[in-house]
C-alpha cells in the first residue's frame, strides 16, 4: 500500500527539491511507500482532501481546522521556532505611512495563501477595511504582489513575512512596511491522516531527532528550517480555536 503525501501549495519554490529529498528520506526511515504529490493550488488541494486522497500533509494553519475536525488528522511535528506572520506594505513612494491612512476602495494585492490573507485583512481592520470595501488584486506569488505595488497596480500588499524578507534588497528598498504581525502561535505542521496514523508515534520520533545527523540536518536546511519539534493535540486545537476567532 502506498500513502499519499502533499505539501500546502504556499511553500517557497526554493524548497521544492527539498520536499522530494525529504520524502525519499522519510520512505527509507519508515520503510513505508510514500508518494509525494505536489498540488499547484489550494483548490486542487482542498479537492484531494475532500476525496480522502491525502494521508500525510505539511499543512497550512488555515486548513488545520478542516483536517483535524472533519477528516480526523493528527499533528506529527512542526518546524521548531517558526511561525507564520504577515506584513502589510506599500510602495516606498506612497503617501500612506500608517494603516489608518488607507481608505475604502483601495486595491489590495495578495495571494491565495489563506492564513496570510486572513492575518493581513485583520491588520487592515483598524482602517475600517474589509473584503466588502477593498478592490482585490489576486496574484500567484509574493514577488508579483511586490511588482503590483511598484507598478502602482495595487495600493497595498499582504505578504507572508518570510516571503517578504526573501525579496531582493533592490525590491525591498522600494517598499515600506506599515505593520508586521507578531502573533507567534500560528504555524504550519506535518499532519497525518487516519489510514496512516499507526505510524504517527514512530514518525514523530524520527522527525524530532532528524537534525542530530548531518544528512538529516542538510535535508532540513533545504526545507528552510533547522529542526522539527513535537506539537501536541491540544496545541493544535488551540491554534484552530484561534484561527476560528479570526475568521470573522
Amino acid at each position: 500500500m502506498s500513502y499519499m503525501f502533499t505539501v500546502s501549495p504556499d511553500f517557497s519554490p526554493d524548497h521544492l527539491s527539498g520536499w522530494y529529498i525529504f520524502n525519499t528520506w522519510l520512505q527509507r526511515q519508515t520503510e513505508q511507500a510514500i508518494h509525494l504529490e505536489i498540488l499547484n493550488d489550494f483548490t486542487s488541494l482542498h479537492s484531494a482532501i475532500q476525496k480522502d486522497q491525502i494521508d500525510l500533509i505539511y499543512a497550512n494553519p488555515y486548513d488545520a481546522a478542516m483536517l483535524v475536525r472533519e477528516k480526523g488528522f493528527l499533528p506529527v511535528a512542526k518546524p521548531a521556532g517558526e511561525s507564520d506572520e504577515a506584513i502589510i506594505a506599500v510602495a516606498d513612494s506612497s503617501d500612506v505611512n500608517i494603516v489608518e491612512d488607507l481608505k475604502p476602495g483601495i486595491r489590495v494585492a495578495y495571494t491565495d495563501d489563506p492564513d496570510v490573507r486572513l492575518m493581513g485583512m485583520i491588520m487592515l481592520e483598524p482602517a475600517d477595511l474589509d473584503s466588502d470595501n477593498i478592490t482585490p488584486v489576486l496574484t500567484d506569488s509574493y514577488p508579483v504582489v511586490a511588482k503590483h505595488l511598484l507598478k502602482n497596480e495595487a495600493d497595498v500588499g499582504i505578504f507572508l513575512a518570510e516571503a517578504f524578507d526573501d525579496l531582493s534588497n533592490l525590491i525591498k528598498n522600494q517598499l515600506k512596511v506599515l505593520v508586521r504581525s507578531q502573533i507567534s502561535v500560528i504555524h504550519h505542521a506535518l499532519m497525518i491522516g487516519p489510514k496512516f496514523q499507526h505510524q504517527r508515534e514512530a514518525m514523530t520520533e524520527l522527525l524530532t531527532s532528524m537534525h542530530h545527523d548531518e544528512k538529516g540536518s542538510s535535508i532540513l536546511k533545504s526545507l528552510g528550517f533547522s529542526a522539527w519539534e513535537i506539537v501536541d493535540d491540544e496545541e493544535t486545537e488551540f491554534m484552530i480555536d484561534l484561527m476560528d476567532t479570526l475568521a470573522t
Binding site: E125, P126, A127, D128, D241, T245, L246
Partner: peptide
C-alpha cells in the same frame, strides 16, 4: 478562548 485585535477608531 478570547482573542482581541486592534479596533477601528
Amino acid at each position: 478562548t478570547s482573542v482581541r485585535r486592534k479596533p477601528s477608531r
